[in-house]
């Protein structure tokens, strides 16, 4: 079983809100000093899913990440968790790509690797929450995709996936190769062990650029972006507290109901 997992570094979603600031003029998030990026937690679930499949039936896990500043750190973490190999995709041409550009880079990398049965991604990146890269990679590679998986099993070469839907879950079976994106309902991600860290710290992680994977320059970078960010700002929440009283609980409840109904969305 050849599994490819795509991971992305993001600003730590557990960052205290006070540390989160944006540059409104440049429409950019200002990364707080001294706070390292982390593997997007949904992508960590994808690594975990790959490890569980490998433990059940053997195989090889290759991790891909598009090279921003913290690519190396999160790659080492995935390797420490138990992934076998990793490739960092790094080229000035890839910088400021949107989801479409990133999916193109990742799909080209998968084509270069050639042999794969399963691609796993997070359901969305925990920074922009767009959730398009997984589906787009599948589209570019022309393979089936199931998004927001809660559990994933491989039985006799057939994938069995339970995925989260609006009001419950759905079970799919599909053949390989395929792409699946993982959701938080899958459960807890393992913490790398000391032995995993020692082996990961020693591993060589190659960097591949545009010429290595044969990306189309018109499809990557800021110029190729399909999305345009119009305005980035931190919303201001206002909280007002009004005590609703009454001579007894029933009257207080009736007044409260009136007030709720009077709120215009």
């Amino acid at each position: 079983m050849e599994i490819i997992v795509c991971i992305k570094p993001v600003l730590d979603p557990d960052l205290p809100p006070a540390k989160f600031t944006v540059d409104g003029k440049k429409n950019e998030v200002i990364p707080p000093e001294g706070v390292p990026f982390v593997m997007s937690p949904y992508d960590a679930l994808a690594v975990e899913a790959a490890l569980r499949i490998k433990e059940a039936q053997g195989g090889k896990i290759t991790v891909l990440t598009q090279g921003t500043k913290y690519a190396e750190e999160i790659m080492r973490k995935a390797l420490a968790m138990g992934a076998d190999e990793g490739v960092i995709l790094s080229d000035p041409a890839f910088e400021d790509s949107d989801g479409f550009g990133t999916a193109h880079v990742l799909a080209q990398t998968v084509k270069k690797i050639g042999k794969f049965d399963l691609i796993l991604c997070g359901r969305q990146a925990a920074d922009w929450d767009a959730g398009v890269v997984g589906s787009l990679i599948a589209e570019y590679l022309n393979i089936p995709v199931v998004i927001r998986a809660k559990s994933i099993e491989v039985l006799d070469g057939v994938l069995k996936i339970e995925r989260i839907s609006t009001n419950g879950s759905e079970v799919f079976e599909l053949g390989l190769p395929a792409l699946v994106t993982l959701s938080s309902e899958m459960g807890q991600v393992r913490i790398p062990s000391g032995w995993g860290i020692i082996s990961a710290a020693k591993k060589q992680v190659p960097k591949w650029g545009a010429t290595d994977i044969g990306t189309d320059p018109s499809q990557t970078g800021a110029a190729a972006a399909v999305n345009r960010l119009v305005k980035l700002y931190v919303p201001v929440y206002e909280r007002k507290c009004e005590m609703v009283t009454g001579k007894d609980p029933a009257e207080a409840a009736a007044r409260l109901t009136e007030k709720i109904l009077a709120i215009k969305p």
């Binding site: 080492r76 420490a80 913490i191 790398p192 000391g194 020692i198 710290a201």
Partner: peptide, 9 residues
């Protein structure tokens, strides 16, 4: 790298 990873772990 190893020391940082142990610290984070």
């Amino acid at each position: 790298t190893e020391q940082v990873m142990f610290k984070d772990m």
